[in-house]
Simulated assay, not measured.
Amino acid sequence: MHIHNLSENNSILNTFISEMRDTTIQRDRMRFRRNIERIGEILGYELSKTLRYHAATVETPLGQCKMDLLNNDIVLCSILRAGVPLHNGLLNYFDDAENAFISAYRHHKENPDSFEIIVEYLACPSLENKTLILADPMLATGQSMVATFEALKPFGTPKNIHLVSVIGAQEGVNYVKNNFREDTHLWIAAIDNKLSEKGYIVPGLGDAGDLAFGEKVQH
């Protein structure tokens, strides 16, 4: 797997990550969502440098201009619900992309420290020979990303796979590395050192879905 960790070089991305982590700033849900969206735009821009392009001629009011334009059939898939603002950020740059949505959540059994990933809702176009961008803001254990990809397999085999996350744990990065094709790309804004006993990223930022959209009722 090709891992692109954008935190290895200083940029304005640091500011957005810092605000998402900061307990005094992250309470502003609108700003939290906007920061995820902006990070999605940055990750999408960096990702775009590896895609296919074709030569084209554009007519301007004063003549013709030869340019290289994007030539990829992209399917952008996000994991609900925290993935929505990240999806929007990527869609701001890949506005012609087809879209897929999937719900994947942790189901805790008798032991509250253990869980399985449940996939329910899924809407997806054909993935055959296309470029799949799979977006999930938090790459904790990596199980959600792998379970999502397994659920997408009946829709065809993508030509290229790009995983996009805001913050991940090294354990989760290792897990997806071992469970995706070698030519898969991971684009991530920051990688933290560890997971808590309950599988949350440390230091992380908390529950991205709750911070973006409000706390959910537990059943």
Rank of each mutant, 00 (worst) to 15 (best):
A104D: 01
L43Q: 04
K153C: 11
E120H: 12
A56F: 05
I12A: 13
V58N: 07
R52T: 14
A123I: 11
G89N: 03
G83F: 04
H162R: 07
Y105I: 02
M138E: 04
L211M: 12
Q26K: 15
Q143K: 15
N88D: 14
L51M: 14
I201E: 01
M20E: 07
K194H: 11
K216W: 09
I25H: 09
P203M: 02
F180C: 09
E110N: 15
H219F: 12
E120N: 15
M20C: 10
L6P: 00
I42Y: 12
Q170G: 03
L134V: 01
T23N: 13
N92M: 06
R38I: 13
I161Y: 05
L127D: 03
P61A: 08
E197F: 05
N99S: 14
D22Y: 06
A82I: 03
A140Q: 01
L90G: 00
P125E: 02
G199R: 00
D136T: 05
T60L: 14
R31H: 10
Q26V: 10
L86Q: 05
P158N: 02
F115M: 06
P125Q: 04
L86R: 01
R21K: 10
I102K: 08
L211Q: 06
P154C: 06
V217C: 10
K49S: 13
D113E: 15
R34A: 11
L6K: 00
I17D: 07
R34M: 12
G209S: 08
K194I: 11
V75S: 05
A190N: 11
N174F: 04
Q170R: 10
A104S: 05
K159Y: 08
N71R: 03
M30D: 14
G63R: 06
E19P: 02
G172M: 05
D28W: 02
C77K: 03
I188A: 06
Q170D: 10
A190V: 07
F149K: 04
V166W: 02
N9E: 14
I118R: 13
Y121C: 07
G142E: 01
R34K: 14
L132P: 00
K49A: 14
T15G: 07
F101E: 12
A123Q: 14
N10K: 12
T157G: 09
L6I: 04
D207L: 07
I191A: 08
L47K: 00
R21P: 02
K198D: 12
I133D: 04
K159M: 11
L6G: 04
A123R: 11
D28P: 03
C124K: 00
A82Q: 03
F149Q: 06
L70S: 08
V217N: 13
D96W: 10
F16D: 05
D183G: 07
I167C: 07
P85G: 02
T50Q: 13
K109L: 15
L13H: 05
M20N: 02
E46R: 10
L152V: 01
